[in-house]
């Protein structure tokens, strides 16, 4: 009996009787949390290098313990609730944002045998949850009862709604080529396709998806909801301590989830040029890290768009491009 059948049998057994999914989910969340923590470290370090400075280097060797120190600091800070806020909304908004961002992990396969919930409409679940995470942002903006937060919340809602469309349309091409919404099936379809990844036939879709993903996660150059030079910190200007950290976590969760989706839908998932024995998801992580690096790189390079320009870009360029992509994909599909 080889390892895979053994695993499947164990999976079947445990799923039925003890709920392996729970353990799996826990493992996944812990791993992703670590990734989030070290994504902040990587961001500071990489941007530091790009800006000719060193970055964090005080806590631990080469500053490696910096994220942990940050978490401890934020945990011990005072959680301030301003007087005028809408209390329940203010309290719950960061959790909505974080939970919506993190739940998407449940349907993302890191490896064909490692997925918490292998649902058939995984792509739809991800799209739904990513737009739900902006719900937390809007609530935070409204509940803070502050001028800057309110403007930030408004910007976030408008931006996320418009880029949601572009992103969904960009993924339609992938669905058409793969013929499925199941992420494992999409990866398998890519392996069977001539280019081994959808990024090449779906180059327009990939571009639209990446731009929309940056906008969806509110990062530079689309970080208008939290534009520090105009709105100070935008929707979370009134938050402090752990609630503030939750928003940060949500942003990085969003970034990682979006990168994972991009890896799965466009870059061929866990398949690589040659298999690495022992670490089946090696290539998945390599591609993921590259995309995260891409996010950081963009942040270090580009200035910020203006609000109306962001809307213009979304509605006038990205959505028509995505529609064009669907038409082209359809034609190829019919002709081939």
């Amino acid at each position: 009996m080889d390892a895979k059948t053994l695993y499947d049998a164990a999976d079947h057994f445990l799923l039925k009787y003890t709920g392996l999914s729970l353990i799996k989910g826990l493992v996944l969340v812990v791993i992703t949390l670590l990734h989030v923590a070290y994504a902040t470290y990587a961001e500071r370090k990489v941007i530091g290098r790009m800006q000719q400075r060193i970055g964090p280097n005080r806590v631990g060797p080469r500053g490696l313990l910096q994220p942990i120190a940050d978490v401890l600091k934020l945990l011990t800070k005072e959680d301030i609730t301003p007087d005028c806020v809408d209390r329940p909304v203010f309290m719950i908004a960061p959790f909505i944002s974080l939970v919506a961002g993190a739940t998407s992990l449940a349907v993302i396969p890191i490896w064909q045998n490692f997925v918490v919930a292998n649902v058939n409409c995984a792509l739809l679940v991800i799209l739904a949850l990513s737009s739900l995470s902006s719900f937390g942002v809007i609530l935070a903006g409204w509940g803070s009862n502050s001028r800057y937060s309110f403007l930030g919340g408004l910007r976030a809602s408008a931006q996320v709604i418009s880029y949601e469309i572009a992103m969904a349309l960009a993924l339609v091409g992938v669905m058409m080529l793969a013929g499925s919404l199941n992420l494992i099936d999409i990866v398998k379809a890519q392996i069977n396709s001539p280019f081994k990844m959808f990024a090449i036939p779906q180059i327009i879709g990939f571009f639209v998806f990446m731009v929309a993903a940056i906008a969806e996660t509110n990062r530079t150059p689309f970080d208008l909801p939290e534009a520090e030079s105009e709105l100070v910190a935008g929707y979370f200007v009134e938050y402090s301590a752990m609630r503030f950290a939750l928003f940060y976590l949500a942003e990085y969760f969003g970034m990682i989830v979006m990168s994972m989706v991009a890896v799965i839908c466009f870059l061929g998932g866990w398949y690589g040029p040659f298999p690495i024995p022992g670490i089946p998801f090696f290539w998945f992580l390599v591609k993921l890290y590259f995309l995260i690096f891409f996010y950081i790189w963009v942040r270090a390079t580009l200035p910020r768009y203006r609000y109306d320009q962001v809307m213009g870009l979304g509605w006038k360029i990205l959505i028509p491009l995505a529609l064009l992509n669907i038409v082209i994909t359809g034609l190829i599909k019919v002709l081939a």
Binding site: I47, Q51, D223, S229, A300, L302, P303
Partner: peptide, 12 residues
């Protein structure tokens, strides 16, 4: 540049 959002210019 930092106000407009380009933060690398700042340190240069």
């Amino acid at each position: 540049a930092l106000d407009i959002g380009a933060m690398t210019v700042f340190l240069y």
